[in-house]
């Protein structure tokens, strides 16, 4: 018998030998009597195994009836409905849109404020500012200083516009921070739930 052929004989017997290996073995079997005998013994073994009698098991209907009585409730393992997954992914999508919206609005607002302050576009954008924009400290200073404030209106107005621009910048940073925080919170919740799902799946895999 050819020792190196024995594993191939098993694979051949099971119909799992293909291509060049199959051709090679079949050619070999034609010339090698001991391998043919070996293959015959393997076939006989397989026939012997298949010839083993099978006992009479309980009928399938009775088995199913018994099984149905013992099936546990499965509410905790129920799949979440499909729409829940959509809602879940709506959160980050919504946050990205909100971020774009806030960015656009604040950039436009800042640009217009700057244009008004420097009078770059003349009166073209004055109607957008909704009248004169002043900060609280400008109003307070105006009331305290009264006519004195009007003595240097240009410098005072410039400082006021600069302050409006700074307030816009702060607002921009604030809203971006809020959106980033919300996104991180969502990411943390997603990671925790995903981790628990993996742990559950692993546990059920081990149980099965």
């Amino acid at each position: 018998m050819c020792e190196e052929m024995l594993p191939l004989l098993n694979v051949y017997l099971d119909g799992e030998l293909h291509g060049i290996h199959l051709m090679h073995l079949e050619e070999h079997l034609v010339t090698c009597a001991s391998c043919r005998e070996e293959l015959e013994q393997l076939r006989r073994l397989s026939d012997l195994l298949h010839a083993l009698p099978t006992p009479q098991f309980i009928p399938v209907d009775r088995f199913v009836a018994n099984l149905s009585l013992n099936l546990p409730r499965r509410s905790s393992n129920a799949r979440p409905p499909r729409y829940a997954a959509w809602i879940w992914w709506l959160v980050p999508t919504g946050l990205v849109f909100a971020w774009f919206f806030v960015q656009t609005v604040l950039i436009l607002s800042g640009t217009i404020s700057l244009a008004n302050a420097t009078n770059l576009l003349g009166n073209a954008t004055a109607w957008l500012s909704g009248g004169t924009q002043h900060t609280l400290w400008f109003d307070a200073m105006s009331s305290v200083l009264g006519s004195q404030a009007g003595s240097s209106p240009a410098a005072f107005s410039f400082l006021d516009q600069l302050s409006v621009f700074g307030a816009n910048l702060l607002m921009q940073i604030f809203w971006q921070g809020v959106i980033v925080l919300l996104f991180w919170a969502w990411l943390a919740v997603w990671w925790i739930s995903r981790r628990s799902q993996l742990v559950q799946s692993d546990a059920s895999h081990q149980r099965s």
Partner: peptide, 22 residues
């Protein structure tokens, strides 16, 4: 053992039912 096989098969299908959602 046929009796043991039936019991084990029932146990297997019960496990399958519990884990079917995954």
């Amino acid at each position: 053992d046929s009796g043991l096989a039936e019991d084990t098969t029932q146990e297997a299908f019960l496990r399958a039912w519990v884990n079917l959602p995954s």
